[in-house]
Write a protein that binds this DNA or RNA. Structure first.
Lengths: 205, 205
DNA sequence: GCATTCTAATACACACCTGTATTTGAATGT
DNA sequence: ACATTCAAATACAGGTGTGTATTAGAATGC
């Protein structure tokens, strides 16, 4: 266990990372607006000096946070289509992935906060919407890919399906997040699976 | 145009109403957390004294605001089923209502803010979830009513349909609200109508 | 080893908000 | 008319936050 001296770059990267992780936790707990720069720096074990030396503003840090999660989710999506199999297996895999999204998606609240910020801050909106747009396009591409692989034409245009499925998932997850007492994880799954199967496959799950 | 002296009760009701309307506007513009009691009172043409004399807290006022909108929406929903008609006309009416919700729903952002607050404030959550729960139950009831009227069994349990449809609508409207440039009102309508028709009617709109 | 460079801490000056306590003045009741 | 009551304004006593400017000290380079 050698704790050797860190070079400047290593040290700064470490600080940056700790600030990002701390900010994520604080944003989850208190919300973006209520989270102060002091809270974040403090939770990471620094003072505001470290924060402003690493990020121009809270918004800047937030976008970085979203970029991290955006890339992670993109990577997760990619794995579904690897190791192609029979049509039945593909359908089953896609359905299970979709109807369990609400359990995985740890950063959901972050994206909701970001959307609200985007509504009110034009600068932020431009950069944020780039993520949303990319997400929609990637999902559309996967949907087309799926259609080709299973050899069935799509019931609706890929873009329409993409937006509907993302919207549905977000909407249902919001219910689940706000009121897990009444809206159980199983209920959310039932809804997602039910709608997905009817819209995409035209049958029951 | 007689501007006669107001009685105490009238005057207080007026103040209360102005505060509520001002708060709604401010919450929309700046968000609930960023809105200060001073902002609200100021926008209504009063000082904080008037605010605290009419509401216990910002949360309290917020719940009142939600109650107003909740009742208005409930009333809107009720009108669809009045003047029963043929099966085709009913389906058409329901479909049009649903796929245009995102245009009417002026207070959408208020409900998003409320959900975020509910996640973080236990007291608020209990009272807020009562609204959500009631909304879900009412919608389920209407769905059952619809099924009876058109004489077709439901493709999914009424509760499942209710949650899915509400979630879908919320999710799609969020896209539309955040990025109306890329996600047009027509696009939102297409998605809502497409999903609704496939899930509920098992056919294209 | 000494000067330089850069990260993070600290100092500063100011802005804004909260909730309660007290006061003011208009509406009410007799 | 006069005393009472109540809505809303104002006074008060803090508390928290911001961003910049300056400083301290460790890493780097010669």
């Amino acid at each position: 266990m050698k704790r050797q001296r860190l070079t400047r770059e290593q040290s700064k990267d470490q600080t940056r990372l700790r600030l990002l992780d701390a900010a994520q936790a604080i944003f989850m707990k208190k919300g973006f607006v209520a989270a102060s720069v002091e809270d974040i720096a403090g939770a990471a074990g620094y003072t505001r000096g470290a924060f402003y030396s690493n990020f121009r503003s809270k918004n800047e840090l937030f976008l970085e946070l979203l970029r991290r999660d955006h890339e992670a989710m993109q990577a997760g999506l990619q794995t579904i289509f690897e190791n192609a199999a029979t049509r039945e297996e593909m359908e089953e895999r896609v359905l299970r992935y979709y109807s369990n999204l609400h359990r995985e998606n740890k950063c959901f609240l972050l994206w909701v906060e970001a959307k609200l910020l985007a509504v009110r801050d034009g600068r932020f909106r431009i950069r944020f919407n780039a993520f949303l747009h990319e997400k929609l396009e990637q999902l559309s591409a996967y949907i087309r890919e799926f259609s080709t692989r299973v050899g069935t034409p799509l019931p609706l245009p890929a873009e329409t399906l993409a937006m509907g499925l993302m919207g549905l998932c977000d909407g249902v997850q919001f219910f689940y997040t706000v009121d897990p007492q009444n809206v159980s994880s199983e209920m959310a799954e039932t809804v997602l699976a039910g709608f997905f199967a009817r819209v995409v496959f035209g049958r029951d799950p």
